[in-house]
Design a protein around this nucleic acid. Structure first.
Length: 295
DNA sequence: CGATTCCCCTGATAGC
DNA sequence: TGCTATCAGGGGAATC
């Protein structure tokens, strides 16, 4: 699940690997990924574009293109970029999977049938978007137009923004009684936290995911913000978590998954107090927490 | 304004 | 062995 650390890993990788590269063509087999346009129109529009910058806004990737344009990519659940070379063809095995995307190499032919969008670069490399669940979103437009989209305009502050103080976080969380877990996952309150880091942050902060936001003290918000920064910083250093099938653009797994704290630890003892972690649903999303030491 | 539900999609898993 | 039902999950939309 690409959350802030995974997206940051991708952005840093792409910034080094493809800045300055020119896109000479595009291929796509899943029209739903390209919002508001057809595959043909998208391909036509992006051909010839030079990649000038790569930035992150919350979990969104913003790729700056020549002509004052922006390519917005949200990887959602299972999306991730891969850099390589592939051949697109039909499976010869005669199984239900018609398409194969084969790594173009003499020895290491690995198949990734989940690549649904490929940018061909002038230097011969390809930038592919793998997305098992096909939830990813790609939008191309004029810079101003993309930045004005509600999902970017309404986005809350980045967790590492110096202007984000515990007081600001508390104010943005509001005086309502939404559960704190839902508040942390609300991208318009604070940008970049998803289910993994939400659970880990609250465990470290010793706050129950069910606690209403209006019952979290100033000290509680200070602790939440501190743990948010600690945990996200640690995961960025480890190049993210590879739960579900996240990989960095070179295909490497991230290191945070094995050292995660609470997420998906239900049925195992809490390392702090020994009580069993539990798993319960909050707003159609699973929360993992220790009922004894998270209050 | 907030809470709830549905939807998108498909691999993994459980049940038969 | 193989079929079918169920579920997860980010985020947006629709509904109440």
């Amino acid at each position: 699940m690409p959350e802030l650390p995974e997206v940051e890993t991708v952005v840093r990788h792409l910034r080094h690997a493809v800045s300055g590269a020119r896109i000479i063509g595009a291929w796509c087999d899943t029209p739903n990924i390209l919002r508001g346009t057809s595959i043909a129109a998208f391909t036509r529009a992006i051909r010839g574009a030079r990649i000038e910058s790569v930035e992150r806004r919350g979990k969104n990737i913003l790729i700056g293109l020549s002509g004052d344009r922006l390519l917005l990519v949200h990887q959602k659940m299972t999306g991730h970029f891969l850099i390589g070379k592939w051949r697109i063809g039909m499976s010869s095995a005669g199984r239900s999977r018609a398409k194969t995307v084969v790594k173009d190499g003499p020895l290491t032919e690995s198949v990734n049938q989940f690549i649904h969008l490929i940018f061909r670069l002038e230097d011969g490399r390809m930038l592919g978007l793998s997305d098992l669940r096909k939830f990813a979103k790609v939008l191309l437009g004029r810079r101003e137009e993309i930045l004005a989209l509600p999902e970017l305009r309404k986005l809350g502050p980045d967790p590492f923004d110096r202007r984000l103080t515990p007081g600001v976080l508390a104010a943005r969380a509001g005086k309502g009684k939404r559960k704190i877990k839902q508040v942390l996952l609300d991208q318009n309150v604070i940008a970049g936290i998803g289910n993994i880091y939400g659970d880990d942050i609250l465990w470290r902060a010793r706050i129950s995911p069910f606690r209403p936001a209006n019952r979290v003290s100033a000290k509680g918000y200070a602790e939440i913000l501190k743990q948010t920064r600690n945990i996200l910083r640690r995961s960025i250093r480890l190049r993210g978590a590879s739960v579900s099938d996240f990989r960095d653009p070179s295909g490497e797994s991230g290191g945070y998954g094995p050292v995660r704290l609470a997420y998906q630890r239900h049925g195992t003892p809490c390392p702090r107090c020994g009580h069993m972690f539990e798993r319960k649903t909050i707003g159609s999303r699973s929360a993992h927490f220790c009922p004894k030491c998270q209050k």
